[in-house]
Each structure stands twice: as structure tokens, then as C-alpha cells.
Measured scan of single mutants.
Amino acid sequence: ENVVSAPMPGKVLRVLVRVGDRVRVGQGLLVLEAMKMENEIPSPRDGVVKRILVKEGEIVDTGQPKIELG
């Protein structure tokens, strides 16, 4: 899985990584606000952040790609 998608609709509060960052499985990639709760979205695997496809403040839909890992 190279693309991390939104598990639920919500607002991107914070992006916790930058392009080029090495990430580990379970590491937080971003914080999504859904139903007035903050949810940290974890990396599904070890890898390197290739692209960030969302911006802080953006509203995302379920299944929308957010971060691409290499």
C-alpha cells in the first residue's frame, strides 16, 4: 500500500511529516478531526514520504488519498 487514504471524512488539522521523511509503521502521519474528535492517522508500513496530497485545514472524504509512501 503506497497511498494512505482517509478512513473517515473530516478536516486535516495537522500534517506531522514532510516529503523525504522516513516513517515507521504506526508512526503518526497527520491529525484528522472527525465528529469533534482528533484522530492521528498512522503509517501502514515503513517507508519514505514521497508526496503529501492534502493541506492543513482541508476537508477530506472517506477513501481520499492523503499521503504517498515510497
Rank of each mutant, 00 (worst) to 15 (best):
E1S: 14
E1Q: 13
N2D: 12
N2A: 11
V3K: 06
V4E: 03
S5Q: 09
S5W: 11
A6E: 04
A6T: 06
P7F: 10
P7I: 11
P7A: 12
M8W: 15
M8P: 04
P9M: 10
P9D: 06
V12T: 02
L13K: 09
L13Q: 04
L13D: 00
R14G: 02
V15A: 00
L16A: 00
L16K: 04
R18H: 10
D21M: 10
V23D: 01
V23T: 02
R24P: 01
V25M: 13
G26P: 01
G26R: 05
Q27E: 07
G28I: 15
G28T: 15
L29Y: 01
L30Q: 00
L30F: 13
V31A: 02
V31N: 00
E33N: 05
E33I: 12
E33L: 15
E33T: 07
A34Q: 08
A34P: 01
M35K: 10
M35F: 14
K36V: 06
K36N: 15
M37F: 09
M37D: 07
M37C: 11
E38K: 10
E38T: 11
E38Y: 10
N39L: 15
N39I: 15
N39P: 03
N39K: 13
N39G: 06
E40L: 15
E40S: 09
E40Y: 13
I41P: 02
I41C: 09
P42K: 14
S43M: 02
R45Q: 10
R45F: 13
R45C: 13
D46R: 08
D46I: 06
D46F: 08
D46H: 08
G47T: 03
V48G: 02
V48F: 13
V48M: 09
V49P: 01
K50N: 09
R51H: 08
L53P: 00
L53C: 10
V54F: 03
V54A: 05
V54Q: 01
K55S: 11
E56T: 09
E56D: 08
E56K: 09
G57W: 05
E58I: 04
E58D: 15
I59G: 05
I59M: 14
I59P: 05
V60T: 11
V60I: 08
V60K: 01
D61Y: 15
D61F: 14
T62P: 11
T62F: 12
G63K: 07
Q64M: 09
Q64L: 05
Q64N: 05
P65R: 07
I67Q: 02
I67N: 02
I67K: 01
I67G: 02
E68N: 04
E68K: 06
L69Y: 04
L69M: 06
L69K: 02
G70T: 13
G70M: 14
